[in-house]
Amino acid sequence: NDEAKKEAEKLWKNNKSEDEIKERLERAGISPDEAEQWLQELR
């Protein structure tokens, strides 16, 4: 999970869309709710 979150953070810094980041997190096995929460922390 931490690995996926690091990846999400990297994508965020590269200005990827939130949808793309969420999709990537969900593919890594993170629930949509958790993915949404993680994005809010990044904002």
Rank of each mutant, 00 (worst) to 15 (best):
N1V: 14
N1G: 11
D2T: 10
D2W: 14
E3D: 11
E3S: 10
E3T: 10
E3Q: 10
E3Y: 11
A4K: 06
A4C: 15
A4F: 09
A4I: 12
A4D: 03
K5V: 03
K5S: 02
K5F: 14
K6L: 09
K6I: 08
K6Q: 08
K6M: 09
E7S: 05
E7K: 04
E7P: 02
E7I: 12
E7Y: 14
E7D: 07
A8D: 01
A8Y: 03
A8L: 07
A8V: 06
A8Q: 01
A8P: 01
E9F: 14
K10Y: 12
K10F: 13
K10I: 12
K10Q: 11
K10H: 10
K10G: 05
L11D: 05
L11I: 04
W12M: 03
W12H: 03
W12T: 01
W12K: 00
W12F: 11
K13R: 12
K13H: 08
K13P: 00
K13V: 05
N14P: 03
N14G: 08
N14I: 07
N14A: 14
N14C: 15
N15I: 03
N15M: 06
N15T: 03
N15A: 07
K16M: 14
K16Q: 06
K16Y: 14
K16V: 15
S17K: 05
S17Y: 04
S17T: 09
E18M: 11
E18V: 12
E18W: 14
E18N: 05
E18F: 12
D19G: 07
D19P: 05
D19W: 11
D19R: 12
D19N: 08
D19H: 09
D19T: 11
E20D: 05
E20A: 05
E20P: 02
I21P: 00
I21R: 00
I21T: 02
I21Y: 03
I21K: 01
K22H: 02
K22D: 00
K22C: 07
K22T: 02
K22M: 11
E23W: 09
E23S: 10
R24G: 08
R24K: 11
R24D: 05
R24L: 15
R24N: 08
R24P: 03
L25I: 02
L25R: 00
L25V: 02
E26L: 15
E26Q: 13
E26V: 14
E26K: 13
R27N: 09
R27Q: 13
R27H: 09
R27D: 07
R27E: 10
A28K: 05
A28F: 15
A28N: 05
A28P: 02
A28D: 06
A28W: 15
A28Q: 09
G29W: 02
G29S: 02
I30K: 02
I30H: 03
I30R: 01
S31L: 07
S31D: 09
P32F: 07
P32D: 06
P32M: 07
P32Q: 08
P32R: 11
D33K: 11
D33P: 04
D33E: 13
E34A: 07
E34D: 06
A35L: 09
E36V: 05
E36D: 08
Q37N: 07
Q37F: 06
Q37W: 06
Q37G: 04
W38H: 02
W38A: 01
W38E: 01
W38G: 00
W38K: 01
W38Y: 07
W38I: 14
L39K: 00
L39D: 00
Q40F: 11
E41V: 12
E41A: 13
E41D: 08
E41F: 14
L42C: 06
R43P: 01
R43L: 06
R43M: 09
R43V: 05
